[in-house]
Design a protein around this nucleic acid. Structure first.
Lengths: 203, 203
DNA sequence: GGCTATTGTTACACAGTATAACAAAAGGAG
DNA sequence: CTCCTTTTGTTATACTGTGTAACAATAGCC
């Protein structure tokens, strides 16, 4: 999907300006709420003229997209090799490699997940749902590992919300009856099975 | 978690004003991007004075929270009964009921998932990841059902991103090696199992 | 019917957006 | 190195939205 390799010589002044703007936005977005960041603020921190921003971007959102595109390109290639991996023994290693990569570029991912009001609201809902499942699942399994419980309930909550979102985007198809079956097998049953295999491991 | 039952008589003028503002925000947020909605716009549509907004709320975000709290309270109770359901036969029915409820309050969920710039960026990443898995999984399984493929790859993508987000929030614990195992069992293996049971069904 | 709380009106200072015209400076080509 | 082009900086401006204030109008409460 990501197709872009211009490689043509670009004026060093342009390169410098765009880099300064990107770096400034990264600094600001890690420090404060994205919604409260102004173009004036970015250009001031980038030590560039206000109008220069408009000579390169149409909006802050566009600049943000460029920042993310630049940083997430490598993740996508790593995920691609991970997805192609059918050998079950290497799957685990590839999974580990991805999370190690994320640890390196943690700032970038923090930006991706940085909350705005709607994202905040979504997070609140997820926490509520996760809490419900945590209560419901705790007595059932004899998991002494609090981390696994935490992780699993979060997985169920986010998966449920993602499934809902996908369903709405898909024009509410398939019908609820089918979705009920999907919910059961994809979210509940599969997670229960995963928890069993996880708690059978060392830790 | 949601604790609020004042029940005290509130001035009907206040009730009317707040309701008008909430309704106006709902209308606007369904029509356009949340980030582009101004308080002036909301008060104009609510047919109330601009300053009246500030007599009830500190920000648009706060008003949005109130809208979501009001509408999502019932969903949470439904999910709670769903989570407590250990009988596997009723699980499917409860799942169906949830999605039927969502269909009724579809507008509200559209608001919850309505994209702002960061949410948009996240969605773009999810689509890229889902596309990768779709390519990788398509030749492996003999699924004639495009919907299932679509749904499943989206599930994997969102689950992976949610797992990453949880991991960052959890201070990057447990370490990547453990997370690799979690990834394998919770996201890949369990989904593969679910797909098997789903494709064994009618459709 | 009269007191009180809420809402509306008008005004204002301030900050950010988006654009324009022109001057200054930095890069590219010979 | 010099000329020419492109990019950047400076200054100005019109516009929109924010957040607050003082006072008038109105609707609820007892």
């Amino acid at each position: 999907m990501p197709a872009k390799l211009p490689l043509q010589k670009v004026d060093p002044r342009v390169r410098r300006t765009r880099r300064a703007l990107r770096d400034a936005l990264v600094v600001l977005i890690l420090k404060k709420d994205y919604a409260s960041i102004s173009i004036k603020e970015v250009t001031a921190l980038a030590d560039t003229a206000y109008i220069t921003f408009y000579r390169h971007y149409e909006s802050l959102d566009q600049l943000l997209m460029e920042v993310l595109d630049e940083g997430l390109a490598e993740l996508l290639t790593r995920i691609e090799t991970l997805a192609k991996q059918s050998d079950t023994s290497d799957l685990e290693t590839e999974g580990r490699l991805i999370f190690e990569y994320i640890a390196q570029k943690a700032d970038l991912f923090r930006i991706l997940f940085k909350s705005q009001s709607v994202a905040k609201a979504r997070k609140k809902v997820i926490q509520n749902i996760a809490f419900i499942f945590q209560k419901a699942c705790a007595p059932l399994s004899r998991l002494d590992n609090q981390v696994t419980i935490n992780l699993t309930s979060n997985h169920i909550a986010t998966s449920l919300l993602s499934l809902i979102e996908w369903w709405l985007d898909n024009g509410m198809n398939p019908p609820p009856a089918k979705m009920g079956r999907v919910y059961k097998s994809l979210i509940i049953d599969s997670t229960v099975g995963a928890v069993r295999s996880l708690s059978a491991m060392a830790g």
